[in-house]
């Protein structure tokens, strides 16, 4: 009965049929003691934000391989603000070109994890952010 169960939403926005990575991350975070909600493939920004609100998550991990991050992520961030949940820690992962990282950080995505990142590194990052 830990008092500090970190709750994470792992979401796959948009038209993207590959979720091996998202599932590996979900499993890894679970094994690190977090409670992980996974919503499945092809989620709209509305679905992701609604899930984040209803589940009252601390962290959202967006996994994207389609290249549509420039379109979808700003919509998700706007809707989070509209819902009063811009306090959530938002992270991203998948195939996101280095050139786009700063733009995404500017709209409030705290960190972008590239392919090959170890799960331990992501776990440490989340724990550090939650401690602050």
């Amino acid at each position: 009965m830990s008092q500090d169960n970190i709750k994470v939403l792992i979401a796959k926005p948009g038209l993207d049929g590959h979720d091996r990575g998202a599932k590996v991350i979900a499993r890894g975070l679970k094994e690190a003691g977090m409670e992980v909600v996974y919503t499945g493939l092809r989620q709209t920004p509305e679905q992701i934000v609604k899930a984040a609100v209803q589940e009252d998550v601390d962290v959202i991990g967006l996994s994207i391989l389609s290249g549509a991050h420039g379109e979808l992520f700003p919509v998700i961030m706007d809707k989070l603000t509209e819902s009063g949940r811009n306090d959530v820690l938002v992270l991203a992962g998948g195939t996101i070109p280095d050139d786009d990282h700063q733009k995404l950080k500017d709209i409030g995505i705290r960190e972008i994890f590239k392919p090959g990142t170890s799960i331990a590194k992501i776990v440490d990052f989340i724990r550090q952010e939650m401690d602050e």
Binding site: S2, N5, A26, R27, L29, K30, E31, A32, G33, M34, E35, V36, V37, Y38, T39, G40, A51
Partner: peptide, 15 residues
């Protein structure tokens, strides 16, 4: 919940 880590994978929203 996992008995070892205390974590959990909550996947019912998928369907």
């Amino acid at each position: 919940s996992s008995e070892f880590s205390g974590g959990a994978l909550l996947g019912d929203r998928i369907r």
